[in-house]
C-alpha cells in the first residue's frame, strides 16, 4: 500500500469514528431527557419512588451490570485481537460479547415476566390504582429499561454482522472500523446501564 493510500485509510478511519461519536452524542441526550424526567419526578414523589423501587430485584440488576461490564471488556479485547491479526480470538471475543448480551436479555425477560405476573405493566388495572408517584416510577422503569433493551438488541445485531465480516475478511487487521464503531455503540449501551442501575435499583 502506498504512503498516500495509508494516509487516506487513516483519515477514513478518523472520520468514520467521528461520525459514530456524533451519533452517540444524540443517543446520550435521548437518554439524558429521560434521566431528567426521572430526577424531577423522583424529587416530587420521593416516598412513592422509594416504595416502588423496592419491588425491583437488586440481585438481578447487579448481575446484569456484571454481564454488561464483562461484555464491554470482551468487545474492547476483540479490537486488540483483530489489530494483532488474531482472527480466531477476535471471533471468540465478539461471540462471547453476544452471548453475554443474550444473558442480559434473558434476565430482563425473567424480570419483566415476574412483574407481568403481578399485573404490573403499563396500562394494567393494578398499576392504574397505585399512587401517582409509583405509577410514574413504573412508567419510567419500563420506558428506560425498554429503550435500553432495544439498544442491546441492536448492539447484538451489529456484533453478529461483525462475526460474518470477520469470517469473510471484510473486517481484518487492515480494516476494522466497522468493529470499532460497533464496539463504541456497545460501550454506549454499557454507559447507559451504568446510570440506570443505581437510579432504578439502588436508590431506594
Amino acid at each position: 500500500m502506498s504512503v498516500q493510500a495509508i494516509h487516506n485509510e487513516r483519515i477514513d478511519s478518523e472520520t468514520g469514528k467521528l461520525g459514530m461519536w456524533i451519533f452517540l452524542f444524540t443517543e446520550l441526550f435521548l437518554f439524558g431527557g429521560l434521566f431528567l424526567v426521572y430526577a424531577v419526578f423522583r424529587a416530587k414523589y420521593s416516598a412513592d419512588f422509594h416504595h416502588a423501587a423496592e419491588e425491583l430485584n437488586t440481585f438481578i440488576g447487579t448481575l446484569n451490570t456484571v454481564f454488561l461490564l464483562v461484555s464491554s471488556m470482551t468487545v474492547a479485547m476483540s479490537i486488540t485481537a483483530i489489530q494483532k491479526d488474531d482472527k480466531k480470538l477476535a471471533l471468540f471475543l465478539v461471540g462471547l460479547t453476544v452471548l453475554l448480551a443474550g444473558l442480559f436479555m434473558m434476565n430482563k425477560y425473567f424480570e419483566w415476566s415476574h412483574k407481568f405476573e403481578f399485573k404490573i405493566y403499563p396500562g394494567s388495572e393494578v398499576l392504574k390504582n397505585l399512587p401517582q408517584g409509583e405509577l410514574l416510577f413504573f412508567g419510567l422503569y419500563y420506558m428506560m429499561t425498554g429503550l435500553h433493551a432495544l439498544h442491546v438488541l441492536i448492539g447484538m445485531i451489529l456484533l453478529l454482522i461483525n462475526i460474518v465480516k470477520i469470517k469473510n475478511g471484510t473486517v481484518s487487521s487492515n480494516h476494522y472500523l466497522h468493529l470499532e464503531n460497533s464496539g463504541l455503540y456497545w460501550h454506549l449501551v454499557d454507559l447507559i446501564w451504568i446510570f440506570l442501575f443505581p437510579l432504578l435499583y439502588l436508590i431506594t
Binding site: 493510500a5 495509508i6 478511519s13 464483562v70 464491554s72 486488540t80 489489530q83 487487521s173
Partner: peptide
C-alpha cells in the same frame, strides 16, 4: 498499513480496567 498510527491496547490493561469497574 497494519496498525499504522493506531494504538493497540493490551489484553491485561483491559482486564485491569474490568476489575476496577467491578470493584
Amino acid at each position: 498499513m497494519k496498525n499504522e498510527g493506531s494504538h493497540i491496547s493490551s489484553y491485561t490493561s483491559h482486564a485491569v480496567v474490568l476489575i476496577a469497574l467491578l470493584a
